[in-house]
Structure formats: structure tokens, C-alpha cells
Computed example of a mutant assay.
Amino acid sequence: MRNFLMRNVRQAFLLALIIGGFTFTGNAQNEYMDPANRKLQETYNGGDFYPVKHYQQNTRKKRPKNVILMIGDGMGLAHAYAGLTANGGHLFLENFKSIGFSKTYSSDNYVTDSAAGGTALACGEKTYNGAIGMNPQKEPIVNIRELAEKKGLQTGLVSTSAITHATPASFIAHQPSRNMYEAIAADFINSGIDVFIGGGVDHFEKRKDGRNLSEELRKDGYQVLYNMDDITGVTSGKLAGLTAPVHNPAEPERGDMLVQSTKTALNILTKNKKGYFIMVEGSQIDWGGHANKTPYVVEEMLDFDKAIGAALDYAARDGETLIIVTADHETGGMSINEGDMSTGKVVGEYTTGHHTGIMVPVYAFGPGAERFTGIMENTDIQKKIKDLLDL
């Protein structure tokens, strides 16, 4: 009875907001955060299972030559277990034997946003919600990708959101607000990054200042391409893959874009003898959590896990690559109250349409993986990578 009453109260509250004309001032980049889209409980009824391969971790090397940091935006334990259930009880994540937890609070809030969370992972310092590569005093902080560039490693970013969105932006830009999308896009110029693939064409080409950043990138030697057929054909050189005006569609509409983008980026970066650093983001796990849509969460989680599988294939073969899989925060306060491993059915329920403050998982595979066990600050992840790569 208590749960029934609480659900009615929540639904009445949301209805009152809508009828009362409550509006959101954020732009279209953040429409997925609108609580009016929430549902307190939804069911994923199951789908096709994909095979999960098991990889042996090479333990001969103590330090990695390459690092692949994979961020499932909004991914908590429930999101991961929802994906595992939906795929008949197995994920590529099961290959990761070194497992820890990360504390995600920001400098000004118990519950972080993706900007502060991304900056902590990229720069190793906690900052205020909304900051991109800036400390609480609004001073730029060097990020791990920039440090890798200075040492001669090649670098890349891949995202299913706009490449200018908070998490990927934290690895490229230094801006006081995550909403400064055109300024963030401008930070790609002269950044030294070798490969980036994601949405956000409009922030590069339809700008208030009249600049066409895509033309500037071409002059700097980048292949600027707009569809996955062209992007996946690139095997060398600098690549800017801009796949949507702003954000890419949800899965399954966008297909295997994340897997193909990950493979393409790794094919290019592995040619560098000094090594590489890449961040790959499964952006829309978070959006499914915001909307409290279990099918959305599950489909995005499975898509992210397939990209993890692609990364594992590289890491297991060369024995010199460390993969870290984590999240910037948990979204939705998701729990799983019913499921079926044999059919893939998942019944998810949620406590909020926003982020929560709970710890998120950290998984590691490859040389140095043992350093990512136990409970740690989110800022420790950057520091551990920095130390392992001797940056």
C-alpha cells in the first residue's frame, strides 16, 4: 500500500508540474533530463542474446603501453546487472577480475553532474558541477589526454553523444560551463588529438561566430567525415568523425556505431609505436536512467558492453593495453525487482529522474589492473593512469 501511495504522489507531482507550466531552460542538448519523461517502472521483455567471449589477461607486464578508458555514463551496478540479465546472464564485463568502486561527489555537491564527474576522471581533481576541465577557482587543469599527447602518445575520443557533451568535453576542453558547446568545439582546434568520433556537427559548422571549424580541421590535416561508412574506411591519419547535428540517435536506431567507432579509432591509434590513450563513452545509459526507461537502459548497456568486447579483443592480443571501465555517476537510482535470465526479461524501478550519489563500479583488465581494486576517489583513476603511463 505504501509503495502504491508513493507512486501516486510522485505521478501527481509530475502532472502538477506539467499542468502548472513548469519549464526547463536548458537547450536541446539536455532534453533527456526532463523529469516529465519519467516512468517509475518499466519492463524490458527480452531480445536476442549475443555470444560473450572469454579472454585471458596477460600478467607478464606490470605497466601498460596503451590505456583505453571506457565510461558508461550513468552506469551503476543495477544498469550493468540489467544488461547481464538481458543477455542471458553474461557480459564481456565478466572478463574483468580487478574490480573496485569510485566515490563520485563533486567539490560543491554530494551528487555530481557529468561535467564535474568527467573532469575528475580526466584531470584528477574534484570541481564544481558544470565545470569542464576547470578547478573550483575556474582555472584550467591539464587532463590525462593532454599529458599523453605531450609524451608522444596518440589520443582519441569516441562518444554516442555530441563530442562536445560534458564527458568527452572534459578530455579536450577547458571551459567554466558545460553549456558552452561552441567554445568546447573550438578547443578541439590545436588540441593535438588524433581521432575523435561523435555527434555535434552544428557546434563545429553552424556557429554564432561564423567560424567553420571543420574547414580549420581539414587545413590541419584531419579527414572530416560525416557517416559511418566513410569513417570506418579510415585506417591511418587524423580523423574527425562528426556523425550527427547534435546527438546520435538511441540504440538500436544508430546501429553498431559505438562498436565500429571504437574499432576504427583503435585501428588508427595502434599504429603508434609509443602507445595511445583513448576515452570511449557509452553516453546514453545515462539518458535511459534519466527517463526511467528500462528498455533504453538495457539496450544502451548492451551496446556499451559490445564496445567493451571490441576493446578486449585488442587488449588480449597485444598484452600491453590496460582497459578501465567505469562511470561518472549513477543515474535514476535504478533497482531490479524482477528478471529472468532465460528470457532476458528485466523489470526496473527508479527512485529519481536525476543522478544519485552512490558509488559506481570500476573494472580493469590488463597490465596494472590490480591497482583499480577497492574503494577509491574518482580522481584516483586519473592519478593511477598517469602513474602507470609515467606521464
Rank of each mutant, 00 (worst) to 15 (best):
N248V: 04
P35Y: 00
N227T: 03
W287Q: 10
S98N: 11
K345V: 08
L388C: 12
P35S: 01
G241A: 06
L388P: 15
K138N: 13
K151A: 09
L69W: 04
T264Y: 10
D73C: 09
I385W: 01
S236D: 06
A36L: 07
G344R: 03
K271E: 02
L147C: 07
R38A: 11
G74Q: 02
V325S: 11
Q260E: 15
D108A: 09
G83D: 04
P140M: 08
G76H: 08
G374C: 03
H329P: 04
K273L: 09
M1L: 09
A82T: 03
I358R: 11
L91K: 06
A28C: 09
A148D: 03
E149D: 14
F92K: 02
Q56S: 12
E370R: 14
T104Q: 04
Y350H: 13
L239K: 00
V362L: 06
M257W: 07
A162H: 10
D305Q: 00
D318P: 02
I19W: 12
G117A: 00
G199N: 07
H79I: 09
G348Y: 04
M1D: 11
R178C: 02
R218M: 09
V234F: 02
Q57G: 01
S335F: 08
V111A: 06
C123A: 11
E94K: 13
G199D: 05
S335L: 11
G156V: 01
P51M: 14
I172F: 05
